[in-house]
Amino acid sequence: MRRKGERGGAGQDPEAVLDLLYGTPPADFVARREELAAAAKAAGRAEDARRIRAARRPTLAAWAANLLLRSRPEESERFLELGRALREAYQTLDADGIKALNEQRRTVVSALTGQAAALAQEAGHRLADAARQDVDTTLRAVLADQDAADQWATGRLESALTPPSAFPQTTGASPEPAGRRAAPPPPKTPPKDELADRRRKREQETEQRAQAARAQAELARARKAAEAAQRRLRDRRAAHAQTDEQRRQAREHYDEAHRQVSDLERELQRARDELRKAERAHRTAEERHRTAADALTEAEREAREAARTVEELR
């Protein structure tokens, strides 16, 4: 669980800073760590700076497991609750019940491993087969071991976790081989006590069945959540492909419109050149017209004068 900073403000809370740091992909972890440590030191928080610099870069698988916890908080909490229920049920079930739980446990872990790989892929980091196997191993450890569950719940794993060879057996007795149960001792109690023992045994069996039912219900919810996550991933991929096609079509439309504008601008420039030529020709024609009109007026005047002269000579 995250703790509130003593100095107030998310930017000065060392726990929040470490959470932020462990959400950084491994390739950028060291640079981000130095940046955050330098900021803490510049703010006068030398102890926080030392804590930040002491943080170790997580492996890619550990980062993916941390990413799953942060990105799917509700599913992760159900997964932790499922681990607690499974560890309790594992102490009381027989060989057939344990086998069924193991099969269901593998299904849930496989689904969550797929989610972690998908989240890492969305963040730009593809998990190789070895890294996926490390995530799978870590999640199996979370189900089997309380200490591993507590480590994963911090969201600051530095390396993959290793599960125990089997779930813990009933406390106070030596572990038995998987799939076998110790034979009950011969009855040494009187018939009345034997009836009480049988009644207690039936009550225990009823409680065992109830625990197994709760575990199966948790498994069903986890599978349903995993399927929903896969559907969301498919929907997002389809939406991304659709928007990519729309972007391509819009780019083609933009390029075509740009070409048309360029052509129209060239046509407009040519039309303007022709207009300027026409204006010059019009001005020249106007000047010639005025010159001709003046010459005509002068010729008419000379003709009138000549006509008067002739008339006078007559």
Rank of each mutant, 00 (worst) to 15 (best):
A196M: 11
L233T: 04
A166C: 08
P175F: 07
E256A: 15
K188E: 00
A182Q: 15
A281Y: 06
L268N: 11
R209C: 01
E287G: 11
E279Q: 15
A217M: 09
R198E: 00
A226G: 15
A285C: 03
K277G: 02
R200S: 14
R214A: 04
R198K: 14
F167Q: 05
T206C: 07
R280P: 00
H253Q: 14
E207G: 06
A212D: 00
T243D: 10
R180C: 02
E279I: 14
A178M: 14
A250V: 05
P186N: 12
D235F: 02
P164Q: 13
R156T: 00
R231A: 11
T170E: 06
R259W: 02
R251K: 15
R156P: 04
D273Y: 03
R214S: 03
K192P: 01
R290E: 09
R156K: 15
A271M: 15
A178D: 13
H289A: 09
A182K: 14
E279Y: 15
D197T: 12
P177H: 09
R181F: 03
A271W: 04
A173W: 10
A241F: 03
G179F: 07
P164F: 04
R251P: 00
D273A: 07
H258S: 12
G155M: 01
R301A: 05
A220N: 12
S165R: 12
A278W: 11
A239Q: 09
D193F: 02
